[in-house]
């Protein structure tokens, strides 16, 4: 724990600690990565180690109409859901962080709650209600459901971005003659833009991965990728699922890298400006 106390015993203890942590990290990532070699297998069933290399499963993945539709559906659902979540999440964050509203903490907890609550509970509540108004199986139905559960992600990232700088900037803009809308446009939004983008990406990723609401609220024509994967998992185990999984994994990691880069750029910018942004 401390460099000043580097007696042999404690040195061994800290080496053991590092080893333990490395093993945990391996446990954390390796299982998922096992799919990668399997997806390039030439076998017709999942076998380890694969007896040969081929891209046939990627070819059949690419040729599959089911996957085409599912990916298209995931985009048609994920993008609008993330956009709604972003617009509403930004509004909620502005109100809760900057506004003088009663029950601030309770309201913040309410906005975050859909992320915490098990989706199965929401799903069996939403299904009958949406069935009554004919939203089950439609795009708007699942889009709105995903918007509700991803809004907390935007709310959290944008709230953090707002808390990162003092409201003095907005007050300054107002003394200089900018009304509420122009203050948001010229000052607040540029300041929180990285948080908004990261929140949007998180929301998109979440919607792309979400299974349970999709299971209840989509139909075979609006079926998303996780739902398709799930259905296939339950009756066949061909490596085409592995190939699809690797493609999705790649897409997720690419989106997260984008989010990380946005965040890092924002941090660098803020670090340079911390002097001006104090108090």
């Amino acid at each position: 724990m401390n460099r000043t106390a580097a007696t042999p015993f404690w040195r061994i203890a800290s080496a053991g600690l590092v080893l333990f942590a490395v093993l945990v990290l391996v446990y954390l990532v390796l299982p998922t990565l096992v799919i990668v070699p399997l997806s390039f297998s030439s076998d017709t069933f999942l076998k380890f180690p694969p007896s040969g290399f081929s891209t046939r499963w990627y070819e059949s993945f690419a040729a599959s109409a089911d996957y085409h539709f599912a990916i298209l559906n995931s985009l048609k659902i994920g993008v609008p859901a993330a956009l709604v979540a972003t617009a509403f999440g930004v509004m909620a964050a502005l109100a809760v962080v900057r506004g003088a509203i009663p029950f601030r903490r309770t309201l913040a907890a309410l906005v975050i709650a859909p992320l915490i609550l098990p989706q199965i509970v929401l799903a069996i509540g939403l299904f009958p209600l949406m069935a009554k108004v004919g939203l089950v199986g439609t795009y708007p139905g699942i889009v709105l459901a995903h918007a509700v559960v991803t809004m907390p992600l935007v709310f959290i990232t944008v709230s953090a971005a707002l808390r990162n700088y003092a409201p003095t900037f907005e007050l300054a803009a107002m003394t200089l003659g900018a009304g509420p809308w122009r203050t948001f446009l010229y000052v607040t939004f540029p300041m929180i833009r990285p948080g908004v983008i990261v929140g949007f990406i998180f929301a998109l990723t979440f919607s792309f991965d979400e299974l349970i609401l999709a299971m209840f609220l989509t139909s075979p024509t609006t079926r998303t990728v996780p739902r398709l994967l799930w259905e296939q998992l339950n009756f066949q185990m061909t490596p085409v699922i592995a190939a699809a999984t690797v493609v999705l994994l790649g897409a997720t990691i690419a989106l997260l890298c984008l989010a990380a880069l946005t965040g890092a750029r924002a941090r660098r910018r803020l670090a340079g400006e911390a002097k001006g942004a104090g108090a």
Binding site: T32, T205, D209, L211
Partner: peptide, 8 residues
Amino acid sequence: PFWTSAVI
């Protein structure tokens, strides 16, 4: 892993 789908 945090952002990888639980299905995957």
